[in-house]
Design a binder for these strands. Structure first.
Lengths: 328, 328
DNA sequence: TTACGGTATGTAAACGATAACATACTAGAT
DNA sequence: ATCTAGTATGTTATCGTTTACATACCGTAA
């Protein structure tokens, strides 16, 4: 069974292709009589216009690329889901690519997407490929940076206030009388990690504590590097009594590491960025900085639709506020 | 900055568009000299062929639809990631749609995807829209059912052995001397739920126990229905001492429910389908039936590529084996 | 010499829509 | 009667590729 084209339908209905097109798109003049007749034929043969041909003619792909570092991290997927919703409503589809935090894969992904002629690009980047991203934006494709930004690029961003949140995380731990606070951070190529570090440092300095390099562990936002982080801290002569962890995956690794090292899970007080699904079942000293990926996604979705509809407002930098949820 | 077309490049290089096409696709005859010359121009202008035009001409969209019931469930996303990998390698892109277990959304999604002329469809369905799916398959689009199947449809399926796994879950609980085993299941519209129920019943009957309806709770695979399930069981006069839960989300809800009811989390022995990320940190009596979404995804990906490459082997029904991981 | 197969390149017709333009009819205004 | 604006429909170029076909050249075998 082969798909019918507009020509077949035109022949069947005894009218021209233009008339079919007008009926399909509710544009131009068509008499009520012919319209019904055409609709009848369309129904009869279950005709669906070829979106590819339409895209070519209109020079609009009706597609949006979305490049994420980890498709299995619910944080990113919640962002993605909200965006997808919005797009689907408007007839756009999303091309997802998971870079697994690998800049080379990211480069390929961007190439792939421009070839597919996406009209917009949503990116939570690895921090590399800056030039390529700028070039994409310059070529007229709308770019929105999600969660992670680049300095010096004039692009729309929708992010969360990492500095503020990290600062409050540290303040919270200081209030609980911790003075030796270990920090498990992401890679400094990524803006969120840089900002979380910066916020933590501000928090410490305002309390009169000099941040020590010894208490800074640079991971890569993966579970494995959370394990490595706690391995590192546990062998210090003067172990930290609290940890600030910069994302949920590393926090998960941190607990796996504690388990591996046979250290009681509640012997260390933890504040973690990002929602940990299980934290509410957990009776350990785990506080989380609740992010709001859904709101992030909705915000991005709205901005995206505005841009796709040709709203050429100046560059937007939207910053959402996460909030700390203390352990029970 | 506007994209260059093959004509622009042809003009720049002083050759015909056919030659450019031949260079791009490494097809037909092109002299080494011209080839280099053309490549030079392509590089210079950073020319990328328009994938949409190519699709139209070749009548191949190079896209695959994937319809999932929950984009934030890592189980499905691990499947998706493996598939996406395989597709990306082959120049295909995936159109993801999240139906949120809503048959009406699923219907729209399928419509949308056929309009976008996907060459194949991967579906973990809600259990409805059977006719539509059959029609899609009949129209020449490759359909692969993932995780969930339909009875009476002659379609490729890649699933897990739910009957076997559920049976062993029950056997495990019986071995631990539980006789009152509550079952929190998914909706019977979905094949996995039917099979998991069936396996559980076989397990009970083989042990000489008559399955009671009172101990069967039909949820809908959501967290919320896990909470409802445990609420229901906890008000029974003769409460179950163990629960078999048919997916990870409901199990999570089950624990949230226990917490809400102020029942100690380890007062009930649980066997759950699906990996629970946190189970390894959990000291409660939680055993899991480990599924292997990655392998599922890879298997689907391989089959998909075979189908896309025109391998017309007979319908495949591949069944993978999950295994039970007892609580510590 | 002629014929032929391999190599190299160009010309032009598709693919399936949309939309600019042309054409024709109707009714009301002048 | 003529003009005009509105309505209704058809014709055809076009979007950017691929590819079937045409053309031409070269060297070698008959």
């Amino acid at each position: 069974m082969v798909k019918m084209t507009i020509k077949d339908i035109a022949k069947e209905a005894g009218v021209s292709t233009a008339t079919i097109s007008r009926v399909m798109n509710n544009s131009g003049y068509v008499s009520e009589e012919i319209k019904q007749q055409v609709l009848e034929v369309i129904r009869k043969f279950n005709y669906q216009p070829n979106a590819i041909a339409r895209s070519l003619k209109q020079e609009k792909s009706r597609s949006v690329g979305i490049v994420l570092p980890d498709m299995t991290n619910p944080y990113f997927m919640k962002i993605a889901r909200s965006i997808q919703h919005r797009c689907f409503q408007q007839g756009y589809h999303l091309l997802f690519i998971d870079t697994e935090e690998n800049p080379e894969k990211e480069r390929e992904a961007l190439e792939f997407l421009t070839e597919k002629r996406v009209e917009a690009l949503i990116l939570a980047g690895t921090g590399e490929n800056k030039d390529q991203i700028q070039a994409i934006s310059d070529s007229g494709i709308h770019v929105i940076l999600a969660d992670r930004r680049f300095s010096n690029l004039k692009l729309d961003t929708v992010t969360e206030d990492n500095i503020y949140a990290s600062k409050s995380a540290i303040e919270y731990l200081l209030e609980k009388k911790h003075t030796r606070i270990g920090i498990i951070n992401g890679p400094k190529t990524i803006s969120t990690a840089r900002e979380r570090r910066q916020g933590a440092i501000i928090g410490l300095e305002e309390a009169g504590i000099t941040p020590s390099n010894e208490f800074m562990f640079e991971g890569d936002y993966t579970r494995e590097s959370g394990i490595e982080g706690i391995r590192y801290f546990s062998q210090l002569p003067d172990r930290p009594t609290a940890i600030f962890s910069a994302n949920n995956e590393m926090t998960f690794g941190l607990y796996l590491g504690l388990q591996e090292l046979r250290i009681p899970l509640d012997s260390i007080e933890v504040v973690s960025f990002g929602n940990l699904e299980f934290s509410s079942l957990f009776h350990h000293k785990l506080s989380v900085i609740m992010q709001n990926p859904q709101e992030l996604g909705e915000t991005i979705g709205d901005l995206l639709i505005k841009r796709l509809n040709g709203d050429a407002d100046s560059v937007q930098n939207i910053i959402l506020m996460p909030h700390l949820v203390p352990s029970k």
